[in-house]
Design a protein around this nucleic acid. Structure first.
Lengths: 346, 346
DNA sequence: CTGAAAGCGCTAACAC
DNA sequence: GTGTTAGCGCTTTCAG
């Protein structure tokens, strides 16, 4: 195993020194080239690149991280679900992270995981990340972790303290308000709400938006029906609501729940939208093809992620200086056929 | 910045040496404790753990990786889509990877990404991973990368060579065959197929399974209709198929496409399942709540991932020795109401 | 514009 | 059971 002689017997991977030797420069110059540092003549740069190519050189990230103290990777903790919303968010995130030149490390905290968010964060920190994104967390009470990197909270208020916290909203509240307004604008006296599990901040925001819309028009909010995001829970809620003649409009906090809800309603003989209007939340494109096509509200994940991440990276790379200003995410109501005016009163 | 004096001014993170000093042992002993190596007395182990706890010590993975040559992380390249299938697969994978004591690095290759799979793999290698999982790749022609770690191909044949290749099937072909058989068993003369994009191996497998089922009963396979996984493409296919009185049963390669298909069929006045039966693929639970509830086939992601991963990790940790045997993934047909016997002939 | 020296924090191999 | 000695492959600092 003597490094100086054969380097491990098997074809060992080339190191920057091998490249330097071949190119006839110093190791540091190789490093300069690979880090796009200035002050390397074009000629030398070419020579180095050529040598690296020839050798099949790939730089060693562990060594880089160790020497520089930066890992160039950011960690994300998500609630591992295959739902359309969370999955879209993750895809957007990966994209944005990679575009920014970072690598992504993912940890799921299935609901009820021991350790939960704190455990996931600790694990990320141990692996080594320059920043952390917490995606749509649930409320786990007091979370205490000793974090030493900037943290981005996506779609939630900060749930623990960190040296530098940046929060990005996807605007759930505004979106929920828009959905409710749409129904109210159609002439419904009131709008019922099929809420998501209240441990999720996203669910709370939507509930709040719904309540705000109602209050702005001076309506009193009817009792909230609780779901768990699943279509099954929406179905259960629908069976409950179907018997109540006062419900003519329902805002569901998720598309899947809306679908389950509609199914129960129709099964009970209530027509959608003629008797009851329903609006969902997420805009999973498949629901344009069910009957009736679902009116819903689109979550601006891409915009929210891009903005939140750019601020996170700013905090990583230029600590101290002012972060870019936050912009309000767009609200996009997708009106299809599950909503309409309330039934005529006799 | 002199390490010997103040360690960087700001409160630097504790290193293993700090723990060793506090516990009155050597650095190596700290290392032993944290790696669960034997030959450390319980008493010393306690002392070390106590000191680490007091200092808030977290081991530095970059240094560990550099010194040991192992990163304890595995990389996954996926086709970043928020679809139910791929998302479920990713969740299963993260779970299994973490349970095995590894960290997960994710790279999405949106279809049409420059570099594609090769680029993603290179990037993963540069970041440093002990193994790579390729999740449901598309055919990109010849992929050439110089890989030096074991690779797991999930739901596809190996698309490039690696020192150690392990393939795990999710059994798409068998599943597709079961779906087709179900329809044939119901009395349909033949079954049409709404296929996924043929660049995807998953789509090819399903098509193959469908064809096999037909051949086994001596039926000739009708022309295939092409979709792109989206409900919209299913809808387009449905408009095409609705006019053809010979179609009484369709097997769609994905749930979303099946939904779009049904929508078009119903819109054209064909009843499902009375006139035409439809079966999907994936088993997204929400489709139990549309009309008609979708008959579909469940992908055994969890089983396939767990098995594939255990073989990948075997290849990483015990190269040379025989890998655990492969077991066939379970096939689970979820019969709901979108399928039934063919319409009576006059 | 380029190079030399000195580590980053840990584990490997071996001695005790 | 435990400690010692050398690096892992890169970046940093500072000289030229």
């Amino acid at each position: 195993m003597n490094r100086g002689t054969v380097r491990g017997g098997a074809a060992a991977l080339p190191r920057s020194e091998d490249v330097a030797l071949l190119a006839g420069v110093s190791r540091k110059t190789v490093s300069r080239v690979f880090n796009d540092e200035p002050y390397v003549s074009a000629e030398v740069r070419q020579r180095v690149l050529g040598a690296a190519e020839k050798l099949g050189y790939r730089r060693n990230n562990a060594a880089r991280a160790l020497a520089s103290g930066r890992t160039r990777s950011i960690g994300v903790v998500t609630l591992g679900t295959a739902g359309y919303g969370p999955a879209s968010l993750l895809v957007s995130l990966e994209r944005a992270v990679r575009d920014a030149g970072y690598a992504l490390r993912v940890i799921n905290t299935l609901e009820g995981d021991p350790g939960g968010i704190a455990g996931a964060v600790t694990s990320l920190l141990e692996q080594g990340v320059d920043g952390i994104a917490i995606s749509e967390p649930v409320d786990e009470g007091e979370v205490s972790v000793n974090v030493d990197v900037p943290v981005l909270f996506l779609g939630a208020p900060p749930v623990f303290t960190a040296p530098k916290v940046v929060a990005a909203s996807v605007g759930s509240d505004i979106l929920a308000q828009a959905a409710t307004d749409h129904l109210l604008g159609l002439g419904h006296d009131t709008v019922h709400h099929l809420a998501g599990p209240q441990r999720w901040y996203a669910a709370r925001d939507r509930l709040q938006g719904w309540r705000t819309a109602l209050e702005q028009r001076g309506r009193v909010a009817p009792p909230v029906v609780q779901g768990d995001w699943s279509a099954a829970s929406g179905y259960a809620a629908g069976r409950e609501l179907a018997g109540d003649p006062s419900v003519t409009a329902v805002f569901a906090a998720g598309d899947d729940m809306a679908i389950g809800l509609i199914h129960a309603l129709v099964e009970a003989g209530r027509r959608v939208p003629d008797d009851i209007s329903v609006v969902g939340f997420d805009d999973n494109p498949v629901f344009a093809y069910v009957s009736p096509p679902l009116t819903t509200v689109r979550q601006p994940f891409d915009a929210a992620v891009r903005e939140g991440l750019s601020r996170l990276i700013h905090a990583i790379e230029k600590p101290g200086s002012e972060p870019p200003a936050a912009t309000a995410p767009p609200v996009e109501l997708v009106i299809r056929s599950s909503t309409g005016p309330p039934p005529a009163r006799h």
